[in-house]
Design a binder for these strands. Structure first.
Lengths: 373, 373
DNA sequence: CACTATAGTGAATCGCCTG
DNA sequence: ACAGGCGATTCACTATAGT
């Protein structure tokens, strides 16, 4: 399913790796037909929140009450969805695809409009949050997930799907339609000059990592019409994809620009993803990469000090001309029949070598918690 | 949130614990307004419906009709959804609720129509299948979940939600919107005389168990307009709820009837679930003073150690120049929007601080004992 | 420095009864 | 209908302060 970029696919210069200013519909109108490989869209959810909400300790929840999330009615929201989806579909290449993320407030309406517009749904994917905000009043279930819709431009569209790469990210078994990933917090969460969150709904990079690894190839053009603080652009740049962002808030554009400038593109080795079957590893080393505990391109060192290897975006290693799982590469370098990669490899942290098994323990601790079985 | 059945709620005899024959819309039309506590609906998907669908002009759609394109298919499905949802909403009690289950083929369209009909979405719930069928062709993600929409009849409807019971089901932490449950297999899966599965989409009883425990009380009337082989009825009977099924396939009705006949209702003790404090009788703080459990003039201490207040003869507190109920004074001293005085204040007993809530529990225990109230 | 305690926070459609 | 009082209600994680 590899696609090559042709001159015809970009008949005039696209604003690649830039952030367009203004309304997303108007900005898309300025782009030519069939020039985009993948669209990732995180439209306003139309939350319709009422009064203030306090936690049991009486602290106030910082609600999403931004003007851009306000619509007067379901009808107004539907018209907005229909309009941006129509433009999005026009500029998508025939074999392109789209991802749209939302919650129960909007996703059903958006999904129906997507089908009406001619998009062909491939999967709905559930982002299961490992650390969601609880339901403080005990009146409903914890709202612990969001829904993404993955669709091709039309029925029969030859969309990109890197099956083996996603399988490699998932312990060697097929990637499922439910993805357990933590919220965007900590250092990854962008802050403004006052230390407050820069954007109320910043998405985790791990989510975009999985989307882009699974449904684009290096060199593809990824459009995000609701760019915000640029998570899509940051991950696209890291993974060697081109991006086009559209964002109407100047503040967000500035933050995104600075953020993306700091991102380093991965080298070619790290970008190569598996193209053939390999043995089923016992543990999902790829999750460490996806979650940013280890970065693609980062070097691992054998604990005996004799070898090193580089991490790739799909959770495999490369050392000289040897590629494969952490176990396979370790075994090959040692000339041994087998090797437990978890106890063989270490990464550098503040000058010290730390076994990667430490990271596995962290993941396991998360997985052991209820609700994540 | 306990509801009592009243004569007015069932003005004429309902076909309780029976399976109605025929089309679900016509069958619902024969039921009176506002007679159902909960609806669980597993509507058929798009393509299975062709033979039964009507075009907007009411001409019947022929399954082999060449003019059956994607657009008219969606349109007809929407009309079908709208029609059955309208009837479902009419027969639902004002404080009733509905669950609808579907996959990406239909759930977005159904969800949008539910919102259009006036249903108020409470949560979308993901049934995360622990043992899904793999995607054999490797062209998409493993379709490992289905989506349920839980909605009240209207915004502001006082739906039933047994928060504590679901929390107990989830090892003491509040129930999330993603439920990990296995598919219906093994002995639970009904077989026909040839050993083939009797129904293509039989739902697991564990799913209905959680739905009914969480959103109904014993004695409630549960309607399933797409009854199939009767999972809803079987679980409802077991849990001491009444059911009404509607199914147009005689074969399914027969299987369901036999299945439900074998189910035994649980005894009363087994049906008891954890309840909220909200359901317990109110006790006025003044009663503690009246009964001499606390004396006027006695000092209370905030459990955080920062404040104290004096009890007055009328059951109010005074602290410096702040007077009022245990709640009002607590909130004022903490500068908080509200305060639960029962868990905020303590009194001194033999040198130790004891929360006043202990005294409330004593009163409640006395009230529960017959002949002492 | 290691460890513990405390505070803060995340796309949230988050009461009910009485007068 | 509306106002006001009662009083029920949180999970996982990060960051910082304290010991």
């Amino acid at each position: 399913m590899t696609k090559t970029k042709t001159a015809e696919a970009a008949p005039k210069a696209l604003p690649l790796n830039q952030i367009m200013d203004g309304d997303c519909i108007e900005a898309m109108q300025s782009l030519p037909d069939e020039c985009i490989d993948l669209i990732f869209a995180d439209p306003p959810y139309n939350l319709q929140l009422k009064g203030a909400l306090h936690r049991p300790d009486n602290s106030k929840v910082d609600a999403v009450d931004d003007h851009w999330d306000q619509f007067s009615s379901f009808r107004a929201y539907d018209e907005f969805s229909q309009a941006w989806l129509a433009e999005a579909r026009r500029i998508l290449k025939p074999n392109g695809a789209i991802w749209v993320i939302g919650s129960y407030h909007n996703i059903f309406r958006v999904g129906a409009k997507m089908q009406d517009a001619g998009f062909w749904i491939l999967n709905d994917v559930v982002w299961r949050k490992s650390n969601p905000m609880p339901n403080f009043r005990g009146k409903r279930l914890t709202n612990a997930h969001e829904t993404m819709i993955w669709a091709s431009k039309s029925e029969g569209g030859k969309y990109t799907f890197n099956y083996e790469a996603l399988k490699a990210l998932n312990e060697g078994v097929q990637m499922r339609s439910d993805w357990v990933l933590p919220l965007c917090t900590g250092h990854e969460r962008l802050k403004d000059e006052n230390g407050q969150k820069a954007h109320p709904t910043q998405k985790p990079e791990s989510l975009l990592h999985r989307v882009l690894i699974g449904s684009t190839n290096p060199g593809d053009v990824v459009l995000d019409p609701f760019f915000g603080t640029g998570t899509t652009g940051a991950v696209a740049k890291m993974l060697g994809r081109d991006f086009i962002g559209i964002e109407r808030e100047e503040n967000y554009r500035e933050i995104a620009k600075k953020r993306i400038a700091k991102v380093r593109r991965l080298d070619r080795d790290s970008l190569m993803v598996s193209t053939s079957k390999r043995a089923e590893p016992r543990v999902a080393f790829g999750v460490l990469v996806e979650r940013g505990m280890l970065r693609p391109g980062e070097e691992l060192f054998s604990l005996n000090g004799r070898h090193k290897a580089k991490v790739r975006a799909d959770g495999t290693l490369v050392s000289h001309d040897t590629k494969g799982s952490i176990h396979q590469v370790g075994a090959a370098l040692e000339g041994a029949p087998s090797c437990n990669g978890w106890t063989y490899w270490a990464f550098k942290q503040e000058g010290k070598q730390v076994p990667i098994d430490v990271l596995r323990q962290q993941i396991r601790a998360e997985m052991a918690r209820p609700g994540e079985a």
